[in-house]
Design a binder for these strands. Structure first.
Lengths: 335, 335
DNA sequence: GTATCGTTTGCATACGAATGCAATTATCTG
DNA sequence: CAGATAATTGCATTCGTATGCAAACGATAC
């Protein structure tokens, strides 16, 4: 027994005014006299009336909705980012439409839904936009901001941390501390962050006259990272340092080294991660890592999106935020 | 330069048919001849037309949208649950409107927005509904399913794991293994899960002729849990077992015991958690804990919500799913 | 060719709220 | 108190799509 919902007409009838008057009571700039407002609000209260956002969106041609596309919600870094972003938009009166995509990032179906949904902005977390859709967003002047993923298309804004220089720092630092057999544990092939971290790392090694000792992929997943570690340490001589593309995998490396291979960190093997998630600071790991400025990334991304939605015209921006090395105890010190 | 969006009229004009014909091309049960469909689709393609979901929702009186309210996204358990739930609804063609609430759970503002948004169902993750809003949902026949939170109101469906018996098992098990000074580390006062776990735990102790040695709150947060641990171990005799209301805090307990107090787990202190999040299985912790059937909880909750949205009438259900003890190595064994 | 039936099409209207315009009322001014 | 001005109010229309209804069309059978 689905009862017909209460509309502004019902309220108008009960209050003895026109539907327009009711409408004006619920919009900020509506001109209405204090006493009619009172009567109307009373009637609304009595009937349990609430303005229908959908109808409002239609006539206003504005949904006040932002679509968020995210993969890897199981990665605490992105869960946190989503939480922050959500707060930013909620506080500005926007609603969030959430879309999850699988790790391999097939955004096609989802993008189509987003465009139909009349979202006024799109935030992409660790998910990539295909060029045709990026183009379509530009055509419809729907601002897009990508966090931690880049795409070779100037029409969308991108906020990333400086993955290349982060990787470069790791390479230099490890070399500087006297390591000679550095291994890299990558995430997913589809991830541009991983690619940049790797590139920087390799370039740094080359600059020191070194080469990468071994390379594996852990797909950003704990269990896969454990397996990859076993492969990296399948034969001697072992690597004397492992750079993992994120903290989550770095922890997997440490756990595997200790529990299965009887190796100590950092005495036998040094480990460096990326992200500075909370786990990195736990006493058991004291993981040296690179901090991504989560807070700032979200702020910048949200502000960008909000600004572009307000202005209605697109002026895409590419921002790269510095990462900062957090020195803890997972790297063997020279001498 | 925000260009006017393409409407079905534009397509109709280009294709030389009526607007109705266009509409029928995009709805499954529309009667249309193959050749007009072809012409229309071609025109739509050419113009980049996409049906406007908002207008469709309005006329269909159905938004195909589910609102998800979640707190504690930083807790991996809920991040995972959200990920699963999202998949379930997306695959049924529903859109997810995401609302984050602060831990203390002020859902009032958010609930008001949800009701205006014309969501057809509400999923609450670790967030509580106040009775007036619960009543309003019932009045509007909007199905609500709460996961892991209970409220004393029969109008909404609730899916929880058996927190009471989980707590009870912990109490019996610890007693059975010869512990005598058990401490409880609670989460938030506002959380019914914590309350049930505590109740079961205390009841089990009483049944063994024991009492709870000490009690603290860690607010489900790592740092707060560390502090609470310090308080629990501020003076001797130390507790010989700690039951933490979730794994996240249990790990904090272990870290603090080892790093700051030089205590071993389980030789000096036994620790039990709740959830069986991935961390619990890491070799460093080998945490004995109670597994919540995440997968099943989500499936049950999503199916319930979907069924109730389809049927349009409410028949709320309270489901309690069994938790299963996962015995690892964080409890000292008798003898 | 005509009568009949089924399919396809367009017309007109509806969904619920916002707003320009004109009409009305309230307020102010001299 | 008349006249002018400002503040409210209601009417009618609009947003973009779906659908009942009747008209037009095509196919089929005799």
């Amino acid at each position: 027994m689905k009862q017909r919902p209460v509309t502004s007409r019902d309220v108008a009838r009960l209050a003895g005014v026109s539907q327009s008057a009711v409408s004006r009571c619920f919009s900020p700039q509506g001109s209405i006299s204090p006493k009619t407002r009172e009567v109307v609000l009373a009637a609304a209260q009595q009937l349990g009336y609430r303005p229908n956002t959908i109808a409002r969106s239609l006539i206003m041609r504005s949904s006040r909705t932002v679509a968020v596309v995210v993969s890897q919600l199981d990665n605490p870094f992105y869960a946190l980012t989503l939480a922050r972003a959500s707060r930013a938009f909620q506080s500005e009166g926007y609603h969030l439409l959430l879309f999850l995509v699988s790790d391999d990032g097939d955004t096609t179906g989802v993008m189509s839904e987003i465009l139909q949904s009349q979202a006024e902005g799109i935030l992409m977390l660790a998910a990539t936009l295909t060029t045709p859709f990026a183009q379509e967003c530009v055509d419809r002047s729907i601002p897009v901001v990508m966090i931690n993923r880049t795409v070779d298309f100037m029409g969308v804004s991108q906020v990333s941390s400086d993955n290349y220089h982060g990787g470069y720092w790791v390479g230099s630092y490890l070399a500087g501390q006297g390591h000679r057999r550095m291994a890299f544990l990558n995430g997913l092939a589809s991830s541009s962050t991983g690619a940049y971290r790797r590139r920087g790392f390799l370039d740094a090694l080359v600059a020191q006259g070194l080469a990468c000792w071994a390379e594996e992929s852990g797909e950003y997943r704990f269990d896969k990272a454990c397996e990859a570690t076993r492969r990296l340490f399948a034969q001697k001589p072992y690597p004397d340092a492992v750079f993992a593309a994120n903290d989550h995998m770095a922890v997997a490396v440490i756990e595997t080294l200790r529990a299965e291979l009887g190796l100590r960190v950092p005495e036998d093997v040094s480990v460096i991660g990326f992200d500075d998630t909370p786990v990195a600071a736990w006493p058991s790991y004291r993981l040296t890592t690179l901090r991504q400025p989560v807070e700032e990334m979200v702020t910048v991304a949200a502000d960008l999106l909000l600004a572009q939605m307000r202005e209605g015209h697109l002026s895409p921006v590419q921002r790269t935020l510095p990462v900062v090395p957090i020195l803890r105890g997972s790297v063997r010190q020279r001498g």
